[in-house]
Design a protein around this nucleic acid. Structure first.
Lengths: 259, 259
DNA sequence: CCTTTATTCCGTAAAAAATACGTAATATTA
DNA sequence: TAATATTACGTATTTTTTACGGAATAAAGG
């Protein structure tokens, strides 16, 4: 073995140590009927549900990959996406549901060719905020089912996807105090009771409506319209929109929402 | 081709799409002489400096990998580590410095075997906080040099490592407002002027010493000792330690340090 | 020994922000 | 037109944050 070969061999060995499966898992969230909901899919032949996930193409950035995955499932462009954490440990993709699927489909899961899904997997966690009304959940070919689930009543989830959702919510709560992102979950025009109850749901605590609206208005991020929503047998609440300029500024520099 | 083979082929193709190079880049920080310093190394035959990085073993979690990398460079166990962001795009590892190294070392960089470093690379960014006095920087065999650099006067860095450092500092600043992590950069016993100036350096703004110390003491996180530090021809400042119980609590639940 | 110098060490008053709280208006149904 | 469920909003109190200056002290130098 010549010296150069040895060097190349060392390099190649080192290379193999760097190679891992990498996926993106996207916690796509909406707010509907006073519930925070996450979009989940159930792959063909599997008894458990999964986050909307996918791989990274060699031609795109990880943010672009996450946006593409969100687009494939929601049909929407330009969604608000945020990377929040990477997950990786030797056993996170060990799940008996996969073995059951292989057995059911007569796939020989003892070969290296097929058991790769149980191998080391690094997953990059993103959350996406969007509006319930705009989304037409679509699993397309890759899933048997694709639908919204209340985050308080999740079905059985594959791998560590429950943990990933919990971490996404932790990150979302933290960001909610530092950025005006809550608005992304509401329609363009919304009422004060709606935004109050959204924040109450995410933060899981009761807010004083008078003080909360005072603070929101003080930031200048929302603007009152001369227009009301008809909500049936009750006084009609005013509609508000958010102020794009102030919003972008607060997104860039952060704000302190002491709520 | 039998049906099963086709399925397996599809699976295998999908598998390849998931495969990427994954590395960890660790922004190891200390505070010394009123400067925030980062530990960098210069690999053999390379003109540019890099963060302390490495790969993930298939037997460890990504946090364990980051801790191991920090240990290999600092000699210290149980460091404070925090994952802050993943980096990945098609061109982040294109750097002429690599090509120059290959040419200098007569390595044929046109073969797939050798140009893998220029391939798609996902890097998981961590920062590590520790004390200058405890660390003996050691590049060991993998680097020609390994030393501290003032974050305000960085040398030429490989790939996007300058960006990674900037993002680490952004994350550190944000965390500084929500967690009592600043203390990790100080020795066990420290003075009020020391911690004030540490926060001033990280946040890059002047603080009112009276109000800052009032707030710190109000959190209960630091405790005054009946002991002073001798600082030459000046009044000797009292020493403080931090309160482990309060500290852990604040680390767990977060605090709001309005500084 | 006394003066100089650079630094630490407080405390209080004013301003700003957060909190607590109750009642009148209103849109619809019966 | 009465009942019901909801929105709208202001003020007083408490808490937190900010602004600010002067006395104490450790060593060095004359």
């Amino acid at each position: 073995m010549k010296e150069l070969d040895i060097i190349q061999d060392v390099i190649l060995n080192e290379h193999n140590q760097y190679l891992h499966n990498v996926s993106i898992d996207n916690v796509i969230l909406v707010y509907h009927n006073k519930e925070l909901k996450v979009l989940l899919q159930r792959p063909h032949g599997l008894a458990k549900w999964t986050l909307c996930g996918g791989y990274i193409k060699r031609t795109e950035t990880i943010d672009e990959a996450a946006a593409r995955i969100a687009r494939e499932r929601t049909g929407l462009e330009d969604l608000f996406l945020k990377q929040f954490k990477a997950f990786g440990n030797p056993t996170r993709t060990r799940d008996s549901a996969i073995t059951v699927k292989f057995i059911n489909e007569h796939i020989d899961h003892s070969t290296e060719k097929n058991n790769w899904m149980l191998d080391y997997f690094v997953s990059l966690g993103f959350y996406t905020l969007t509006e319930f009304e705009l989304v037409r959940p679509t699993g397309e070919l890759s899933a048997e089912e694709c639908q919204w689930w209340d985050i308080l009543k999740l079905p059985a989830l594959l791998f560590d996807h429950k943990l990933i959702i919990e971490e996404a919510l932790k990150a979302l709560r933290l960001h909610l105090y530092n950025y005006p992102i809550g608005y992304k979950l509401l329609p363009e025009k919304f009422t004060l009771p709606e935004i109050t109850s959204l924040y109450e749901t995410i933060l899981d605590k009761k807010l004083d409506d008078r003080n909360f609206s005072k603070k929101l208005l003080a930031t200048g991020i929302i603007t009152k319209l001369d227009e009301r929503r008809n909500i049936g047998p009750h006084r009609s609440p005013f509609l508000y929109i958010f102020n794009k300029i102030k919003y972008d500024e607060a997104l860039e520099n952060g704000i302190v929402l002491s709520i």
